[in-house]
Amino acid sequence: MLLEVKNVSKSYKAGISALESTSFNVMGTFNACLTGPSGSGKSTLLNIISGLLPPSSGEVFFDGASLATLDDAALSRFRCENIGCVPQGRSMLASLTVLENVCLPFYLAKKKGDPKDRATELLALMGLDGFSNRRPKELSGGELRRAAIARGLMNQPKLLVADEPTSDLDPANAEAVMALFAKAIDAGVSVLLATHDMNCLKHCSIHLTMEKGRLLA
């Protein structure tokens, strides 16, 4: 079982409950879509699954291992090696070139070698040949999102997590991004998306709906 979410809840200090006793599990390679209105807890669940946010209660198991047993350093290493992340909005670091942005997870994972060839290959796969030395500010929204996906795939993760990957894209670019996720799945990478965009659903094998911090289906 790749991912198992077991009775996970999250509440904040102010008494706000963002997530209530949520459970689900998925096996094998999957393409899951998490939908629901704003504030329904999608991003919170995504961050907990990614190990970015500790749950208030419950547990997340990834490939059979509980994330709760890992300290920050181990959890960070785990994220580097297993989970690719495509954050919401513009997430490319402005101080780095596109190529450096894509290579960054490689260096954060403290891997040995030169990641340039793989990064260039991923950029080509995303249709971004010749963009290596450009700065993020020189790229359009769609190009940035594709570069972020390339970065998410850099360390050959088992799971790619994307928060609103098509939120500010026109339909053509949104479709292109979804096609790239399909390519990732073909390469054996599971994909978990949080989205408002119902057009994404047609690409997904699993559809999870959230409302008021609860998983409906």
């Binding site: 920050d72 350093a73 960070s76 994220r79 997870p105 994972a109």
Partner: peptide, 15 residues
């Protein structure tokens, strides 16, 4: 935001 992205990409708090 920038630090959050580093974290999401796998940077530890120490990093």
């Amino acid at each position: 935001r920038e630090f959050g992205i580093y974290r999401a990409l796998g940077a530890s708090r120490k990093k």
